[in-house]
Design a protein around this nucleic acid. Structure first.
Length: 714
RNA sequence: GCGCGGUUAGCUCAGUUGGUAGAGCGCGUCAUUGACGUUGACGAUGUCGGGGGUUCGAAUCCCUCACCGCGCACCA
């Protein structure tokens, strides 16, 4: 017996060595798997790793995802599949640019005024450094992914493919240039998609002003300078005397103006006075009304959030400061009818800096979502994509049924350039310049535009050697929060480009919260760093503590004492091995089995069959718990205790039988535990006299048909 | 307002097609020079959110109410 078993299990001196052995073996690449392993099955099994953002450290949510994906991959590999887990890294456009801008701020610098190319180079250097760091963190979690196939979203071939998709969609009429209302962040100076904003309910005073013969309500007096249309429902009897197109003169903020009556069915007669004025440039709804009636659309607020010359004396004032002054002025003119100070409304804010989003009208590229969403729904209806947990499918459907056209233009440098060209009013989508006088778009793609194509690109689309074999992929394992941000986009692109749903199963894990179940956040100071935990308790302990009791889609409260408990479990396995090796030095592994021992062997077979089924059905949390119980409560507490009596007695046949049995149980227990706790199990495997090669590529135990039939409880 | 989820032991949560409630941690008692004190044995604590229904039988299926969490939202 190896002397190392005389001391407690030491993850620190084990994990790096074991990982290097695995990585050097080449078995993370399914093309290299031993023939005798893949002979029984040989089918591909593919998981695409959600590419972590290369702009910082992994958080504990990453640790959960990586663990789940690694478990699925390892089980399939041991079952003889050509298991391929494809790692990647995301440049994470806006996210990374925000991180970098914060860094610049700390250094007293600003992106504005910097040469864009210089800024790009700086962020690239920053990202590449973080990317290497991130990759090592993924390794330290034990991830058995194929690094030889790793891609970065800014690799030249990826960029080229994403740009080709844009051109193709433009040619197919699925992408258009539109002058439309966008979510504008005046701090970050870019438009944002709807999923990059958050809506917060806030108390904002609701003012009612006299507007000629009408009373009109607003929470945004600062936008009212250009309001020259007054809108009401066509069937509102109170205003029947006013006809669509009537004009009238009135006294307004900066003097007399002429206003026009507009009748539009979108106005709710029950809200306020049933009359409103509109500011089409700074409101989505107003913009739609203006378009329906072909009305003038005028910008009031500039891109920095300051009032334009139309505001007269208020020109150049920040809107937040202008508001009370405008109310004051209207009140002085006797035009303020009432103020409801307790009014609650929804304010949209930038999800990164919480700056209030200013709707602005801007020329941007939009993806026409309706036909794409329709195909995604049809695919799900046809059962081509299955959600775990099932109820998440409803969330997916809701998004697909309500998908608005998607703004993919970002006014930031850190991203994939949009291959679009302008010449006067002319617009072209093309990888090359269409000719003289054409200027390329300076905008970059929304990151989801590239990450939406990730399963395709990672599996070699359109003509890579892997593509036919590994697309579509098997499982997409990711966080529940991405069910409407990322999943729909992957399905859409997968169907559009690859003609198949990009994965047959979507496994969504819940969010990892703190011990009290509260969301982790830097401001609360309750963030748990997974690497602190692995350093303290070992990676295996962290992995299995993230898995046991964690049902898909349900949030997990991360408690350090739980990790500590599973560190004890890793050591328990270590000591089980010590006991067995100490007592079976002279074992004949082929010794005849007593009937007692045969029934113990059958019992493990039943457990194996049971957890194999759990794994097939993605009940990973349950499989893990069953193995844990078998190893600790049955094997250690009962079978080992019983064995002490057998060894102390005189029955030589029983002793010989038991010795062989214990070795057999240990080997299979290590095997089924390996996907969950790969390091300690591999380390022990390497020390068993009867084993050859690596546990990582040892076959998953085969059990008899009788054991497989677990439906008939005794 | 719409949607989704949750409500089970002090805490965090399981409970796979309905068959008299489980785990970990915590708590209590006892044991142990033992493979392991990073241990073992035993134990206590639950009207399974409330109400109604279906059923021989409901934590589990249906209806309803309450509360908590999350997401979405172009009511000025």
């Amino acid at each position: 017996m190896d002397d190392k078993f005389l001391k407690p299990y030491d993850p620190a001196s084990t994990e790096t060595r074991i990982y290097e052995m695995w990585e050097e073996s080449g078995f993370f690449n399914p093309d290299n798997l031993p023939e005798e392993l893949t002979a029984q099955n040989g089918k591909p099994f593919t998981i695409v790793m959600p590419p972590p953002n290369a702009n910082g450290n992994l958080h504990v949510g990453h640790a959960l995802g990586m663990t789940m994906e690694d478990i699925m991959t390892r089980v399939k590999r041991m079952q003889g599949y050509r298991a391929l887990w494809l790692p990647g890294a995301d440049h994470a456009g806006f996210e990374t640019q925000v991180v970098y801008e914060k860094k610049l701020e700390k250094e007293g610098r600003s992106r504005f005024g910097m040469d864009p190319q210089e800024l790009y180079k700086e962020i690239l250097a920053f990202t590449l450094e973080n990317k290497a760091n991130m990759e090592n963190q993924v390794r330290s979690l034990g991830a058995s992914c194929d690094w030889t196939r790793e891609k970065f979203t800014l690799d030249p071939d990826v960029v080229a493919e994403v740009q080709r998709t844009f051109v193709r969609m433009f040619e197919d009429g699925l992408i258009y240039r539109g002058k439309r209302t966008v979510n504008w962040c005046s701090k970050h100076q870019t438009s944002l998609s709807d999923v990059e904003t958050e809506s917060v309910e806030e108390t904002t005073p609701f003012y009612t002003f006299k507007y000629g013969p009408f009373d009109i309500g607003t929470v945004r007096p600062e936008t009212k300078f250009g309001d020259k249309y007054v809108v009401m429902h066509p069937d509102d009897a109170r205003y029947a005397e006013y006809k669509h197109g009537d004009t009238f003169d009135l006294e307004w903020i900066n003097g007399p103006i002429t206003a026009t009556v507009i009748k539009d069915e979108s106005v709710d007669p029950a809200f306020g006075t049933g009359v409103m004025t509109i500011t089409p440039w700074h409101s989505q709804v107003d913009f739609e009304i203006a378009k329906r009636h072909n009305l003038d659309i005028e910008q009031i607020i500039d891109w920095r959030g300051k009032l334009l010359p139309i505001a007269g004396e208020f020109e150049g004032v920040k809107i937040i400061e202008a508001r009370p002054k405008i109310v004051e002025k209207l009140a002085a003119k006797g035009l303020l009818v009432s103020t409801d100070a307790a009014y609650k409304n929804i304010v949209k804010r930038c999800y990164k800096c919480s700056t209030i989003i200013e709707p602005q009208v801007k020329d941007q590229w939009f993806v026409k979502m309706a036909p794409l969403a329709q195909s995604a729904l049809e695919s799900v209806n046809a059962g081509e994509t299955r959600f775990i947990p099932e109820h998440e499918e409803k969330v997916f459907r809701y998004w697909m049924e309500n998908a608005l056209d998607w703004n993919i233009s970002r006014q930031i440098v850190w991203g994939i350039p949009i291959p679009a060209w302008f010449k006067g009013e002319e617009v072209m989508a093309s990888l090359e310049s269409p000719g003289e006088g054409w200027e390329m778009d300076t905008d970059t793609f929304d990151t989801w535009f590239s990450s939406g194509q990730w399963p395709l690109i990672m599996s070699g689309y359109p003509d890579g050697k892997d593509y036919a074999q590994y697309y579509s992929t098997d499982v997409m394992e990711t966080g529940r929060d991405l069910v409407f941000k990322w999943i729909p986009r992957m399905v859409i692109f997968g169907l559009y480009l690859g003609k198949k749903s990009p994965f047959h199963t979507v496994y969504l894990h819940g969010m990892v919260n703190d011990a009290q179940g509260k969301k982790m956040s830097k401001s609360k100071g309750n963030v748990i760093n997974p690497l602190d935990l692995t350093a303290k308790y070992g990676t295996d302990a962290l992995r299995i503590s993230l898995v046991i009791g964690n049902t898909p889609g349900t949030d997990l409260a991360m408690r350090e004492d739980k990790v500590k408990g599973y560190k004890n479990f890793a050591n328990k396995i270590w000591n089980i091995t010590r006991f067995i090796l100490e007592n079976t030095q002279d074992a004949d592994l082929e010794a005849a089995r007593t009937s007692d021992d045969q029934s113990m062997r059958d019992e493990l077979d039943t457990v194996i069959a049971d957890i194999t089924k759990d794994m097939d059905e993605y009940r990973i949390y349950m499989a893990a718990e069953k193995i844990y119980h078998y190893v600790w409560d049955r094997l250690a507490s009962e079978i080992l205790e019983d064995s002490k009596k057998v060894f102390a007695a005189e029955d030589e046949e029983a002793k010989a039988s038991r010795k062989a049995l214990l070795r057999s149980l240990l080997r299979d227990a290590l095997t089924i535990l390996h996907p969950f706790m790969p390091f300690v199990t591999e380390e022990i495997w390497q020390s068993l006299p009867e084993t050859r090669g690596m546990l990582m590529v040892s076959p998953w135990p085969q059990v008899s048909a009788a054991a497989t039939d677990t439906t008939h409880a005794p």
